[in-house]
Design a binder for these strands. Structure first.
Lengths: 359, 359
DNA sequence: CTGTTAGCGCCTTCAA
DNA sequence: TTGAAGGCGCTAACAG
């Protein structure tokens, strides 16, 4: 007997055991219900030629009645395509959200669906993190489930992929992977320039994780702006904040305790900037009266406190959109020249945490 | 010849055509590289008993060398489980984001991975939307790719599912599906009560989409608060905002144009509330001086303008967390009593858009 | 301990 | 115009 009941079996009704209540209908159920073979159903679904109109109608009816929807993974396994684009993220946090919105926008009406995947929610397993999380997710999903991927803030180079990939804000330089990031250098420059324009000259910098390119670029912008303005760089005013609150608060507190404290500080991200404000307050200082603070990112929390934070906004949505567009191009013409690096412009948002220094 | 080259074939090296540069390694590649059968590799991967230590080591080495990762979809097709939980969303917007964060939190260290899926990014296709988007996504992914699903703001009842499901903030009443939502009634009540406490009595309401249960509940809370305070309900002060900016702005403008305009308004969501503020300003009125405004949701934009919005905050993260926990329970004990409905408490956030009425 | 066999749900030749 | 057979990558039962 063949694996599945065919037209000629006594069962015009579904074979026994199939379609027990609540189970998903499969293509077999549809075939049985319509009294045709599985391959005919497949042809109808995929609008292939060679099906009698009358038969097609009967199959459509069965599909509608059973509420059948072809299984993404089964068809994916068989053919190469799924029309799904995967967004690989380390976690669902604000940065990823904003990027996702942009990607989602760009994908509207393209026929592609969106799938965001956050691999292993486990706390850092040294064993597993040897290869980057993105690499493992890619192997797991790639080749099949998704036609292309956008990787958000990957920690390592992505190699050996069978599907096109675009990286957003990679932590390290990329080799052949097209990538989108912000003009971190320009951001550091603008932030510092803003403080200079206000009249500050003793401007500190709470830099980010020096192992990340973004942090290094922001610092480079800071240095360049000072130099261009003819202000000597005082290395002792550059402290390590690591993009985190505690280290920044400590470092800033120490800075403000000195004989000739800075009158302004450029923090490598908003988290640090808010920590800096906290440290200044704890020392009895007023922001922006005694200390002007500029952040980077424009996270939601930047506007929820008082004063609201002057900061550098990254065009996260635009970055997502650009990444999606690049990926779509790669998908459309596989031989397209891939390697490119896009620097999106940043924007200085002036709010209440900066002011001219007291004379 | 058997489908796949076996140990005895002359090819100790991979069969021709396999592992062309950049392609994903399959279990066959690993088997060939290690000189064992495919099933042995499978046993090693899944830590089944019955593999000699020496063999296992050789296989592990091959896996490491090839960077092999088992394909999620292939194994998913074969066994029932994937250890992936799917979150089905209509789109990637702030509401969904916040919920996702909560879900993500709850899933940490549970061994489950997270996959957010937004079906068809196409603008509304009447043909397709006959069944809800969530129903179609469920059929596509269910049965295989995901072990369970959390559906965010589903528009219709989910039936016929083979996997456990939890709904968050369903638009309609649910039958058997466990669901989590906010205390919309309580929120409407608190918002209105706050205005009453400030001394307002002519309090308008820009209600939401009346086809949605959440909007109806908020209105019910509004009415109850007024009645409890002994304030007669003036039906002409209740206008339709549809949760959207334009209708609300128009309705509010008309309201403020009347002989005896309201001194306060409770808008069904923040979008409407911001529109109401805009309308008041356009009419030369001051907020909160001439008109107090309360919103609902506490979206990011609520704090980015001036004055910041007094609003009702929904515990979106908590809702996500609760949904994930419910789903995990269902997954752990399939026969668990499912049907339940959880109303999460809301919180009134008083900011600058409300004040006592001018005498 | 190892390999062969069958099949998850689907699509695509190829024959009838 | 239709259906039977094969196979995508993988796992589970069974046979050696």
């Amino acid at each position: 007997m063949t694996p599945h009941a065919t037209t000629e079996t006594p069962a015009a009704t579904p074979p026994a055991g199939v379609r027990t209540l609540g189970a998903r209908a499969t293509i077999h159920d549809v075939a049985a219900a319509a009294g045709v073979s599985v391959s005919t159903v497949s042809k109808v679904i995929n609008e292939r030629y060679g099906v009698a109109a009358k038969t097609a109608v009967r199959v459509q009816a069965a599909i509608a009645e059973l509420g059948y929807e072809s299984s993404l993974i089964a068809s994916s396994l068989r053919r190469g395509r799924t029309n799904v684009i995967g967004v690989l993220v380390a976690g669902f946090e604000p940065f990823a959200h904003a990027v996702l919105e942009g990607i989602s926008e760009a994908l509207t009406d393209t026929g592609y669906e969106l799938l965001a995947y956050s691999g292993s929610q486990a706390s850092i397993d040294p064993e597993q993190s040897r290869r980057g999380w993105e690499q493992r997710s890619l192997s797991k999903l790639g080749g099949t489930l998704i036609d292309g991927a956008i990787v958000v803030t990957p920690s390592a180079e992505s190699t050996q992929t069978s599907i096109p990939i675009v990286a957003i804000d990679p932590h390290t330089g990329t080799h052949g992977t097209p990538s989108i990031d912000t003009d971190n250098y320009g951001g550091g420059h603008s932030a510092t320039r803003h403080l200079l324009d206000l009249g500050h000259t003793r401007i500190a910098h709470a830099r980010g994780r020096t192992d990340l390119e973004s942090a290094r670029e922001r610092e480079r912008g800071y240095r360049a702006a000072l130099t261009e303005a003819g202000v000597d760089i005082d290395e002792s005013l550059i402290v390590d904040g690591e993009f985190r609150a505690e280290p920044t608060a400590e470092a800033v507190a120490a800075l403000l305790d000195r004989d000739e404290p800075p009158t302004a500080i450029f923090a490598a991200n908003d988290i640090s900037a808010l920590a800096a404000i906290g440290a200044a307050r704890a020392g009895g200082l007023d922001v922006p009266g005694d200390l002007s603070v500029v952040g980077f990112d424009d996270i939601p929390a930047a506007v929820s406190g008082e004063p609201r934070l002057t900061t550098i906004r990254q065009p996260l949505r635009d970055m997502g959109r650009a990444a999606a567009e690049t990926l779509l191009r790669l998908l459309a013409e596989p031989e397209a020249t891939a390697p490119e690096r896009l620097h999106m412009p940043i924007e200085l948002i002036v709010r209440g945490s900066t002011a001219a220094p007291r004379k």
